[in-house]
């Protein structure tokens, strides 16, 4: 399962991480977010040791989504060394996410 990150833990867990981090911005009432859920959880396991996969609930945490201009959910943002490398919006497939990671040479 992908771990939940909050506004309070965002800097330490995401921006200061040693590994690249894939963040899923989501909310419990959002259908496409829920559709994406199992894909994110499977990736968290498959990519262990290569990419850290985490989730931010935008209902409970508003600063991180605002800081990165998240205006639709689900949005996936890929971070490395505190910088945004790439992002995708919508319930996308595992293959599409893996292609983005490969393109950015993180997995």
């Amino acid at each position: 399962m992908a771990t939940q990150v909050t506004d309070a833990t965002f800097d330490a867990t995401v921006l200061k991480a040693d590994l690249p981090v894939l963040v899923d911005f989501w909310a419990p009432w959002c259908g496409p977010c829920r559709a994406l859920g199992p894909v994110i959880d499977e990736l968290a396991v498959e990519l262990e040791g290569q990419v850290l996969v985490v989730k931010v609930n935008v209902d409970e945490n508003t600063s991180a989504p605002a800081k990165y201009g998240v205006r639709a959910i689900p949005t996936l943002i890929l971070f490395k060394n505190g910088e945004v490398l790439d992002q995708m919006t919508g319930a996308v497939s595992k293959t599409a996410i893996k292609e983005m990671l490969a393109k950015k040479a993180v997995a």
Partner: peptide
């Protein structure tokens, strides 16, 4: 601009606006 103001789900993204 999909995800940066363009949306296909009012229920999901309405709150951002």
């Amino acid at each position: 601009l999909i995800g940066k103001g363009i949306s296909f789900c009012a229920l999901c993204d309405g709150n951002f606006f």
